[in-house]
């Protein structure tokens, strides 16, 4: 049998199709836009196409993410933290701390050796440290996050940003540019502030695995996490899809009649 997970996120929607063994057969991702259900349908069809499957071959669809209640064709929905936890454990297979940086939410999730979710922390009601922060700053500087990554990678050291507030961080950056500070360092400082905000959320006491759209598209973040934590960090395979994968795994366990199974 085959199962689908649809993660309707605040920025992007992701769809993943798996088989009974949890093998990823097809996936798709695109901007969520203003019609959540439509985005979900489009991406579900796209993922089906990539998997070479038809709708009626899918035994169950589970939705997650901010738009999880807007997916008309999902038989069940699950909160995204649980899905990220489940997807991460499926990929990592050992105890770990998952750091997920999404569009508007950051999560730190602690998983036990058997995959149980022991603890989680979300960002406060603030965009600081999220993917939205990076998008907002890129827009403010009239550039793209690709270019910001390239410049940041060339920096010797970061020019620090102090502000918690996304808007005032933008103002601080403008001030740094005006002061002729090293532009590469400023870019690195922007990414560093995301890492700092995230590490302020909870103590990290295990192997770190990274997931989420922001880490998938901003490789500088991975280096900065390594540097700040002074330990290796692992980027999960297809990091942006981890929540959707978790939802598909939930679909599999729900279909098999084990609603609480998380492994």
């Amino acid at each position: 049998m085959y199962y689908a997970g649809i993660d309707i996120g605040s920025s992007y929607t992701k769809a993943v199709i798996i088989d009974d063994d949890g093998k990823r057969l097809g996936a798709a991702v695109a901007k969520t836009g203003i019609n959540f259900d439509e985005a979900a349908k489009t991406l579900f069809n796209e993922a089906l196409k990539k998997a070479g499957l038809k709708k009626d071959q899918i035994a169950m669809v589970v939705s997650t993410g901010v738009g999880r209640n807007n997916c008309s064709f999902a038989q069940a929905n699950k909160p995204e933290i649980s899905c990220i936890a489940k997807g991460s454990y499926h990929l990592h297979g050992a105890s770990c701390m998952v750091i997920d940086i999404g569009g508007q939410d950051n999560k730190v999730i602690k998983l036990a050796a058997d995959g149980r979710q022991l603890f989680f922390k979300m960002n406060r009601k603030c965009a600081a440290g999220t993917g939205s922060f990076l998008e907002e700053i890129a827009m403010r500087l009239d550039t793209g996050t690709d270019k910001m990554n390239k410049l940041a990678a060339q920096a010797g050291k970061s020019v620090p940003i102090n502000s918690f507030c996304t808007v005032f961080a933008g103002t601080e950056i403008i001030h740094q540019i005006r002061e002729n500070q090293d532009i590469n360092g400023i870019m690195r400082g922007i990414f560093e502030s995301v890492v700092k905000r995230t590490l302020e959320m909870a103590p990290i006491d295990d192997t770190v695995v990274l997931s989420g759209g922001a880490v998938a598209t901003n490789p500088v973040l991975i280096d900065l996490f390594k540097e700040k934590l002074e330990q290796e960090v692992m980027l999960l395979e297809h990091p942006q899809d981890v929540g959707a994968l978790g939802a598909a795994l939930y679909a599999r366990s729900l279909q098999q009649g084990a609603p609480d199974e998380q492994k």
Partner: peptide, 13 residues
């Protein structure tokens, strides 16, 4: 999101 995740987590603790 937080409350649903918390209740879900409690089923594993």
């Amino acid at each position: 999101t937080a409350a649903e995740s918390f209740i879900e987590q409690l089923t594993h603790v």
